[in-house]
């Protein structure tokens, strides 16, 4: 069996009384684009800082391709990182920062870096103090995507990018995956996660709530079903997975369906259904389900 790109074993971080991360167990297989989601203060950045050895775990351990995260000289040979809040050396220009990163980093594809500078429309001759938030983020993104490190760890990398650059970002993530790089992406942009991620983990209040593919997440969730019927109304009471049945007008019925649809379909087959619409929940709705129930910290 191949080693996972990232592994957390009982990973825990406490700040005084606050448990920022509570016994996280997580494997991210190599080659995957992995989304990491959760409300503000859920512990996403804390997890990433533990995975990078920037903070020390209170308990448990983290591994990067089988190497202990605390051994940064070896673990960081295999990864590149874009922090949530990029701060650059103000006196260096973008080009100088990219140069420093390339010379101290795990190896950079210089031709691809030039291409990325073009695609992200960055002017690298400017001193970093004159860069806007988005431009600072671009410098960090270009430096990370240009490395040949097998793992990219990105913490909310697109919060300052405009839609055009967001598109370039998604392209770059896909190209990274095509090259076989693993991407660990923490994000609040659900559309972005939906577009690029193979699997997602959901963190709430320091605890892992769920890990699954986006399709499975959908499947686990309620769909809105509306039917129009002729003749007798169907009897849906007591059917497993069917809830919130209500009339939606003359000979129309609306209800929500969770899980396997077969029992509900059998019940509907008993009457004459003339129309049926099913709406999958948006990712937003799924997350509101996850996030909303417990107040964030």
């Amino acid at each position: 069996m191949t080693v996972p790109a990232l592994r957390a074993v009982d990973l825990t971080k406490r700040y005084g009384h606050l448990t920022a991360l509570d016994t996280l167990n997580l494997d991210v297989p190599a080659g995957e684009v992995f989304g990491f989601l959760g409300p503000n203060g859920a512990g996403k950045s804390t997890t990433i800082r533990l995975l990078l050895g920037l903070a020390r775990p209170t308990a448990g351990r983290a591994e990067v391709f089988g190497v202990d995260a605390a051994d940064v000289a070896s673990a960081h040979q295999r990864l590149a990182y874009v922090p949530a809040d990029v701060a650059l050396w103000p006196q260096l220009t973008g080009a100088e920062i990219l140069h420093l990163q390339a010379r101290t980093g795990p190896g950079t594809d210089l031709a691809y870096r030039e291409e990325l500078v073009d695609r992200f429309a960055l002017d690298p001759s400017k001193p970093a103090r004159t860069y806007s938030t988005g431009n600072r983020q671009k410098v960090a993104l270009i430096a990370a995507f240009a490395t040949r490190a097998p793992l990219l760890v990105l913490d909310e990398p697109t919060s300052g990018l405009d839609p055009l650059m967001e598109r370039e970002f998604r392209t770059a993530v896909r190209q990274a995956r095509d090259r076989g790089q693993t991407v660990f992406l923490s994000s609040h942009q659900l559309a972005e996660v939906e577009a690029v991620c193979d699997r997602v983990a959901i963190l709430r209040a320091g605890r892992l709530v769920d890990v699954s593919t986006i399709e499975d997440l959908r499947g686990l969730h309620r769909s809105d079903v509306t039917i129009t019927y002729a003749g007798m109304a169907p009897d849906l009471s007591g059917i497993p997975g069917v809830e919130a049945i209500e009339s939606a007008g003359e000979r129309r019925l609306r209800f929500t369906l969770t899980g396997e649809p077969a029992p509900a379909l059998r019940a509907l087959a008993a009457v004459e259904v003339t129309a049926l619409t099913m709406r999958e929940p948006s990712l937003e709705e799924i997350f509101l389900d996850y996030y909303g129930t417990e107040a964030t910290r």
């Binding site: 990078l52 920037l54 940064v72 000289a73 070896s74 673990a75 960081h76 040979q77 990864l79 590149a80 990182y81 922090p83 809040d85 990029v86 701060a87 650059l88 050396w89 920062i97 420093l100 990163q101 101290t104 980093g105 795990p106 960090a140």
Partner: peptide, 12 residues
């Protein structure tokens, strides 16, 4: 957080 650029590199 400027140092993050270096602490995330393979540098002890």
């Amino acid at each position: 957080r400027r140092l993050t650029q270096l602490t995330s590199q393979p540098i002890t």
